[in-house]
Design a protein around this nucleic acid. Structure first.
Lengths: 106, 106
DNA sequence: ATTGTTCATCGCAAATATACGATGAATAAA
DNA sequence: TTTATTCATCGTATATTTGCGATGAACAAT
């Protein structure tokens, strides 16, 4: 029963987990894939691609924004969404570093 | 009413989302980091490293097993956990391919 | 047989996530 | 002004996740 420091996760583990969590739903993967392929697109374009109501898509977009992986620019009356290059790069690097910590066998 | 058609998503998006979701908690990141560093270790070793009760750690281990990222071998009275090299490699490749779909800017 | 160790599972509570319809805000066009 | 379009947010329902104590299963050592 040893000593557990409460709240004792490493900052990098928390950051990586946040990025991973944002990727943890197929709808959000699909959204990011679309944004990456098309560079940028409007919210409505995304709604058309997914089997979800507009409100639900908007919610997934919000989560992706909070995670930092995307950004949204208002171009009335639409909103243009793009991948956030800086955080995308950061997530990519952290994820890559994590998977390269390696089970000797690879 | 939560799930709509799961078939509406692409199989690869579902698989990647499942891996990502498994990584979506700092405790599970920490567990995987420890397993990767030490190659293999006992459940008890992991419990000592985390600020969580044994039951909770066991639950996180179960999720990681279900995701396929780790495997557990019984060596009475202990259980030795290791990263599953095959699925680890698969997750690594899928994640890498995903992040290399690219926002032109990188 | 009894005891101790290690770990999984059960049962429960609280917190989060997922989804949708309805509504609101902002803007353009008539 | 009125109408239509686009998107966010609110309210609500349900599902899933997270966490812990208690208990159980399997085994080793006495």
């Amino acid at each position: 029963m040893a000593h557990k420091e409460i709240g004792a996760y490493h900052e990098d583990d928390i950051r990586l987990a946040r990025f991973a969590k944002a990727l943890g739903h197929p709808a959000r993967i699909a959204i990011l894939r679309q944004l990456a392929n098309m560079n940028c697109c409007f919210c409505g374009d995304i709604v058309e691609e997914l089997p979800l109501a507009q409100a639900t898509v908007s919610q997934h977009l919000k989560e992706l924004k909070v995670s930092g992986l995307i950004q949204g620019n208002i171009e009335p009356p639409k909103v243009r969404y793009c991948i956030d290059p800086e955080n995308w790069k950061k997530a990519k690097e952290m994820m890559s570093a994590f998977f390269n910590l390696n089970p000797s066998a690879l």
